[in-house]
């Protein structure tokens, strides 16, 4: 009886080990996640008249994240933002931001980011290098991206979360309005993303 129980236990452990092994081999493949715009946020802040910070966000964007846990260098991200969706909580300021003083959104309706290199820093952080294109100008940007969690949504889909904050100089993208004291050159961008596994 005792021997029979031990044999069954061993068999169950073997099956479990096989299952875990096969799951790990699935996870080792690069996985593509579609950015969930409802649960992702792109916010920015810039200093106004060298006094207070003005905050804004983009409401419409899309993109994909490819995660390779075994080899992070194979990971990547592509993001496309609708410049017309800028939202600072003031419709007049939003109109001004869409105009040639800032985004010139009629000529350049999209702001894009495409990663060129991903380097692992530690178990929860990677450094992402990529090209940010805004107002027709492409400049390299480097950001430290932190893994914020993994789980399942209400539909049972696998989801993953990351967050990053980095600073750009808007003058490098020909966004020069108000540089002489009106608005700071440095713009801090925070990108908090939730991706849905494809």
């Amino acid at each position: 009886m005792h021997k029979q129980f031990r044999t069954r236990l061993m068999a169950q452990i073997a099956i479990l080990a096989t299952l875990v092994g096969s799951l790990q081999s699935v996870q080792a493949q690069p996985v593509t996640y579609r950015i969930d715009p409802v649960h992702s946020f792109i916010i920015f802040r810039v200093k106004h008249l060298n006094t207070g910070f003005a905050y804004g966000r983009f409401n419409t964007f899309s993109g994909t994240i490819v995660v390779d846990e075994r080899n992070p260098a194979n990971s990547s991200i592509e993001l496309e933002i609708d410049a017309n969706s800028v939202d600072t909580g003031n419709s007049q300021r939003d109109d001004h931001l869409r105009n040639p003083d800032f985004f010139n959104a009629r000529q350049f309706p999209k702001i894009t980011f495409k990663s060129t290199r991903v380097r692992k820093i530690n178990d929860t952080t990677v450094e992402v290098q990529g090209n940010l294109t805004m107002r027709g100008v492409t400049r390299p940007v480097t950001a430290r991206v932190t893994f914020t969690g993994k789980g399942r949504n209400q539909r049972g889909q696998e989801i993953i979360g990351f967050e990053t904050t980095f600073t750009i100089r808007r003058s490098q993208f020909n966004v020069n309005y108000g540089l002489n004291g009106g608005l700071a050159d440095e713009v801090r961008v925070t990108f908090a993303v939730e991706g849905i596994r494809q």
Binding site: N104, Q107, R135, G136, V137, S171, N174, N176
Partner: peptide
């Protein structure tokens, strides 16, 4: 007011 422009301009303005 605007800084040095490019030629040919990337930004049409």
């Amino acid at each position: 007011i605007q800084g040095r422009p490019d030629f040919p301009p990337i930004d049409a303005t």
